[in-house]
């Protein structure tokens, strides 16, 4: 079986992506051997925030994060923090700091494992990471999409990884699963292949997406009713009356076209 596909061929098949730099293949497609890989702990981090509204001075933000730890396949522990109600001058509040703090915390909790984060530029935290924990950090970008939909038929159906530029990889983690874009710090394709085979071995995959990270999304998400409760709490307990962020488009065009 031909397990390697020529990167140049892919660039020819997908010229638009290649032109725009979306598909800048630096190497060959390498199949991932899902049977190999040692037993390692997996952790995932995700945070979410909702802007509840604003008054004359501040934005009011609701923040929540979830850390998920998976050990020995079936042992899953979720640590939920928040929701925290914050007032801030910026609409993103302290979301970013919270996310980074959580990644660092997880990195210190496990060692020789894999830490999954949601679409974060890992260079932002590279300097803060303590190397002695020896964890592999993988940033998973689930919203990555090709303009040319033929990409799914061009790539092989089996689990593979292919190097894009700058420590960025494309991978299919389960047979017929979705293709995801991954970032790994200072990793070659061989290292990436090894780490991903460990991930496949130690985590469940849901449509090609790691379940640990999926659980982190689920438990971090702030639901609409929670935002309503927070607004109610602000009003009832703190006597703060806030207005929702104005949406000019909605105001002008109405809810149907806005």
């Amino acid at each position: 079986m031909n397990t390697e596909t020529n990167a140049g061929l892919l660039s020819k098949e997908l010229p638009r992506e290649a032109e725009k730099g979306i598909l800048d293949l630096a190497g060959n497609i390498v199949p991932i051997n899902s049977d190999s890989g040692e037993e390692v702990p997996i952790a995932a981090v995700d945070s979410s925030f909702v802007v509840l509204g604003q008054d004359n001075e501040n934005f009011y933000i609701l923040l929540r994060s979830a850390l998920v730890f998976r050990k020995n396949q079936n042992n899953i522990r979720v640590v939920r923090s928040g929701p925290f109600l914050l007032s801030s001058e910026s609409s993103e509040g302290h979301f970013h700091e919270m996310e980074i703090d959580n990644i660092l915390r997880v990195n210190e909790t496990i060692s020789n494992g894999i830490v999954l984060v949601d679409g974060l530029d890992l260079k932002e935290i590279e300097s803060k990471l303590k190397s002695y924990h020896k964890n592999f950090l993988i940033s998973v970008d689930k919203v990555f999409q090709f303009e040319n939909m033929r990409v799914f038929s061009v790539f092989p159906k089996y689990p593979f990884v292919v190097n894009l530029k700058d420590n960025t990889f494309l991978a299919r983690l389960s047979p017929n699963g979705f293709i995801v874009k991954l970032s790994l710090l200072n990793s070659s394709i061989t290292e990436a292949c090894k780490v991903l085979s460990m991930l496949i071995r130690n985590d469940e995959l849901s449509f090609g997406y790691p379940l640990t990270l999926k659980l982190a999304h689920i438990f971090a998400k702030i639901l609409p009713y929670e935002a309503s409760s927070a607004r109610l709490s602000l009003y009832m307990k703190e006597k703060v009356s806030i207005t929702r962020k104005l949406d000019g488009r909605k105001l002008l065009l109405g809810s149907l076209w806005g």
Partner: peptide, 24 residues
């Protein structure tokens, strides 16, 4: 899902939680 796995809550806001419970 939380019944199948261990979920620990920390730093939660009891006031928001109370209103959330009431709403749901």
């Amino acid at each position: 899902k939380a019944q199948e796995i261990i979920v620990e809550n920390e730093g939660h806001n009891t006031s928001i939680e109370q209103f959330g419970d009431e709403i749901i």
